[in-house]
């Protein structure tokens, strides 16, 4: 078992087989740098719980492929990314910091899927981006690459 400590001083015990999916922690353990508790100053407990949930489910990826549990894993992944933007970005940051490639891919893909086909207005609203461009500036940018701003149906909804 490996103990992880979040930046709000909460400790979590995780099986080594699960936690070594993080390249960062794997390297720490291999190099003998892992102390009794590994502090993670960039990750809060709420995010760490999500990451550990993922690690525990994906503990034996290779085995899942053999035993036909792939669908189960796929379903889990779909459910897993069903979270708000802020939470999703927190998990992306944590996955990047811990270097968990699969989790990074999963969450960035989910973020990308949510942006797909959305109008500029919808993206601004979803990500709470304040438009600080003047109309002229905006038009100038559009004129720079008109092909990107015209064309097939663009979704204006914020879901």
């Amino acid at each position: 078992m490996v103990k992880l400590k979040s930046n709000d001083d909460k400790e979590f015990e995780v099986e080594e087989a699960a936690v070594i999916q993080s390249e960062m922690i794997k390297n720490m353990i291999e190099d003998g740098c892992a102390t009794s508790v590994i502090p993670l100053p960039n990750i809060d407990s709420k995010t760490l719980i999500k990451v550990i949930e993922y690690l525990n489910k994906h503990i034996n990826m290779g085995k899942a492929a053999e035993t036909g549990e792939e669908d189960d894993l796929k379903e889990f992944d779909e459910q897993f990314v069903n979270m708000g933007w802020e939470e999703l970005f927190d998990v992306i940051m944590a996955a990047n910091y811990l270097n968990i490639h699969e989790l990074m891919e999963l969450c960035c893909q989910s973020a990308a899927d949510r942006l797909k086909n959305k109008s500029v207005r919808a993206v601004r609203e979803m990500l709470k981006i304040t438009n600080d461009l003047t109309e002229e500036e905006e038009q100038e940018i559009i004129n720079d690459a008109p092909w990107a701003f015209e064309g097939p149906e663009i979704d204006d909804t914020v879901n």
């Binding site: 959305k118 461009l133 940018i141 720079d144 990107a148 701003f149």
Partner: peptide
């Protein structure tokens, strides 16, 4: 690539 380029007009 089209969607990526469209983000150039979100904000400064």
């Amino acid at each position: 690539v089209r969607e990526a380029v469209r983000t150039s007009v979100l904000a400064k």
